[in-house]
């Protein structure tokens, strides 16, 4: 018997929207910036697809402030 997803749709739709949104946001940020505080471009592009934790990690520890130091 296939698993019936219908009762979970109220969860799954917003969850999917948030996850896809986060991935897109972090992908855009990774690809439009040259320097990162930690890691490199390949690492962050791959991690952007690791749901929830990847994009959040990028914005907290990977993203460069853009300072000129």
């Amino acid at each position: 018997m296939p698993f019936d997803l219908t009762p979970y749709l109220p969860f799954l739709i917003p969850l999917a929207v948030i996850e896809v949104g986060l991935t897109i946001a972090s992908l855009i940020h990774v690809l439009t910036h040259k320097t990162y505080r930690t890691g490199n471009r390949v690492l962050w592009v791959v991690l952007s697809f690791v749901q929830i934790i990847g994009p959040v990690l990028y914005f907290i520890i990977g993203r460069d402030d853009g300072g000129k130091d």
Partner: peptide, 25 residues
């Protein structure tokens, strides 16, 4: 601008959704 506020909001939004979902699943 340092994305701390949006990240925190998203993370807590997810926590809010996860709790009933985990209880149900």
């Amino acid at each position: 601008r340092t994305y701390k506020l949006p990240i925190l909001l998203v993370v807590f939004l997810l926590f809010g959704m996860m709790s009933p979902l985990l209880a149900k699943l």
